[in-house]
Design a protein around this nucleic acid. Sequence first.
DNA 1: GCAATGATATGACGTTCGTCATCCCTAGTA
DNA 2: TACTAGGGATGACGAACGTCATATCATTGC
Lengths: 208, 208
Amino acid sequence: MAAEQEARIRVLLAEDQAMVRGAISALLRLSARDVEVVAEAGDGEEALRLARETKPDVALLDIEMPRLDGLGVAQELHAEFPLLRIVILTTFARPGYLRRALSAGASGYLLKDAPAAELAAAIRRVARGERVVQPDLAYEALALGDGPLTGREREVLRLADGRTAQAIAAELHLSEGTVRNYLSEAIQKLGAANRGEARRIAEERGWL
Amino acid sequence: MAAEQEARIRVLLAEDQAMVRGAISALLRLSARDVEVVAEAGDGEEALRLARETKPDVALLDIEMPRLDGLGVAQELHAEFPLLRIVILTTFARPGYLRRALSAGASGYLLKDAPAAELAAAIRRVARGERVVQPDLAYEALALGDGPLTGREREVLRLADGRTAQAIAAELHLSEGTVRNYLSEAIQKLGAANRGEARRIAEERGWL
DNA sequence: GCAATGATATGACGTTCGTCATCCCTAGTA
DNA sequence: TACTAGGGATGACGAACGTCATATCATTGC
């Protein structure tokens, strides 16, 4: 705690919910003297702008943000500043998100479910060049995978929340029959009785 | 700031995401000397238990929590401790949530999108007996009312999340035709095209 | 006393849905 | 090369769905 006196870790914080953003900033200010929040962004575009302006050591990014999501920001920042360390901080334990985050160049993937104390620890570790990913999540990402649905099946199922097959077909520029086929396959792969149940199941497992 | 020296406002904080919970706690500790977080709960049941144990002045409740949601906690706490002030702190600007929150006895309804500074202000105001609700949200909630559905229609629609009419009928001890009748009425009252859409609409407006 | 409302039911009709067989085309790969 | 997987389409069939007319019965309210 009193060892590293030299330079504080400069952090960019991107999170769309203002209250949560302020709260996390307060958490870091209160619990981590060696961490300094040098910029706060409310959306992805702003995060990019502030990153270029302030050149932080670590970027702490939420995934679901307006205009440009955290994974997109990670990709851009990693390409532009290879030395910048990126931590994704999100609600979602979706294996798909984790996979995309890592391939976008993120060094850490932290859940908002994790204890508050882990945040500062994670920032310190990625700043030292380590990777921070919860082992159980990594395991799930491999075991559960992305689910049994193909890309198109997923797209169709995502739109099946009350829309008719015709409406879905129009939106995706497909024939109505094709839509029904995809839905039928999805229903069987998920062991559901109809599209409504299939959607519920897929959503629960993070396969949408 | 230096005026009220006497008693600090004792706050119970209930929020399922540990990191957000810790962060909000830090925010209050850092920005509001007159507020003291006396208990932190990770789900609704725990919130009830801790409230009975610590007798706080204000309960700050997230809505979406495991085991018992914030609205349920509000209802119980309001019945048990009429003097306890309740603030709902949530992501969702749904009029239905607000309506249910107020009728559950909440004094405040705050969005996580609001500036971090408003949190302490809101807590102080409800502690003084005032109400804290964003005016535009309040207007919408009043305009929407209780919805056009009868009790039975609501029950049936609530079960229509992928179940067949037959399954719903079995669960409620009704004939399949009757279930289809209720669903048909609900669909028309809500201006939907089918049960799936009807359910979505009713859910969004808090009519379930 | 009678109209209105809500819960419940039936029968009938047309539409949408879920399934299956079958076809075409492309890309990757054993 | 042949095989496989994914995307896309068609036609047909039975089941489920959405609608409407109609009926009974109880409750509520003027």
